[in-house]
């Protein structure tokens, strides 16, 4: 029943995409797909290992800036590593950090929002209290402090970011559940004797999928930018991993001279974040159009 409803809404969305022009959705989707393709195909596309260093051949310019080494079409970095390969592998880390963080943070946020919205009363008060506490913690500072203490393994970074980026999931989930819980199909399910857990998971959650996807895109963009900021401050992804944020951090001392070193990962990071945001905006438009129907 519930899955059929979710499927139906997906079909309706797909139909709407086909019917109207959704420029931002299409553009955003294309960018994200492109980056995903980079990440997945990195082992195939990359001409070199991203870790292979050659100090004698460092800072070779890319071909479009007068470089002459065909084997390094985007030049080499300050340790002579192939820049194209590192950029491709960097897509893996960006998406991994983005997706990993959002998966975790949506789990935390949705759970808190579901419980608060469904049970109301003191459970809801506790849920909202947690959100307020989370919001009063300075994001970048706490992330830096905790990573500085525990170390910056990729899993730690994702965990810390997830622990700080769940609030919007909780707030949106809660307000949606508040609207849903008095709706007929929920009341019917309850009357039929379904357990709370069953109602939450099979009746309510599927109805949240679409709006939560919108939040997920925004938070994913946030997580990716935060990872870059952590790396910039020297507390992000560890070398020699190829993360765009780390690549920018490594190149920052040369920003006025070999600016392509910072611009290439910078543009990719920027594009990915724009793409994810466009995708989110597009999805939101689609949903509000659906509500208007």
């Amino acid at each position: 029943m519930a899955s059929r409803r979710a499927l139906a809404s997906l079909v309706a969305i797909a139909a709407r995409v086909g019917r109207r022009r959704h420029a931002s959705l299409v553009l955003g989707g294309a960018i994200v797909l492109l980056v995903a393709a980079m990440a997945l195909l990195a082992p195939v596309l990359a001409p070199h290992s991203p870790y292979e260093q050659n100090l004698a051949n460092r800072l070779a310019p890319p071909l479009f800036l007068g470089g002459t080494q065909a084997s390094h079409p985007l030049g080499t970095d300050m340790l002579g590593r192939d820049y194209l390969s590192r950029l491709l592998y960097g897509a893996q880390i960006a998406l991994l950090v983005g997706l990993g963080t959002v998966l975790l943070s949506s789990l935390i946020g949705t759970t808190i929002g579901l419980l608060g919205g469904y049970y109301g009363g003191w459970v809801d008060s506790v849920a909202m209290f947690l959100v307020t506490v989370r919001l009063s913690l300075p994001l970048v500072l706490v992330a830096l402090a905790v990573v500085g203490l525990i170390g910056s393994a990729l899993s730690v970074i994702m965990g810390v970011l997830a622990g700080l980026l769940w609030d919007r999931f909780a707030v949106v989930t809660r307000s949606l559940v508040l609207q849903l819980r008095e709706r007929e199909f929920i009341l019917a399910a309850r009357a039929a004797g379904a357990s709370d857990l069953r109602i939450l998971l099979t009746e309510i959650l599927p109805n949240l999928a679409a709006p939560l996807t919108v939040i997920a895109t925004l938070e994913m963009a946030n997580a990716i930018l935060l990872e870059a900021a952590l790396s910039f401050l020297g507390l992000g992804v560890k070398p020699p991993e190829a993360s765009w944020g780390l690549m920018i951090a490594e190149a920052k001392d040369l920003v006025f001279f070999q600016s392509w070193l910072i611009n290439l990962p910078g543009v990719l990071l920027f594009s990915l974040v724009v793409g994810i945001n466009l995708l989110g905006d597009g999805l939101r438009d689609l949903l509000s159009a659906k509500h208007a129907d």
Partner: peptide, 22 residues
Amino acid sequence: ALLGQATPTFWLCFLMILLFGI
């Protein structure tokens, strides 16, 4: 607004230093 959200802060900082500072 979208560009503002997506521009990494440090990038903007260096661009400004380059243009307005140097």
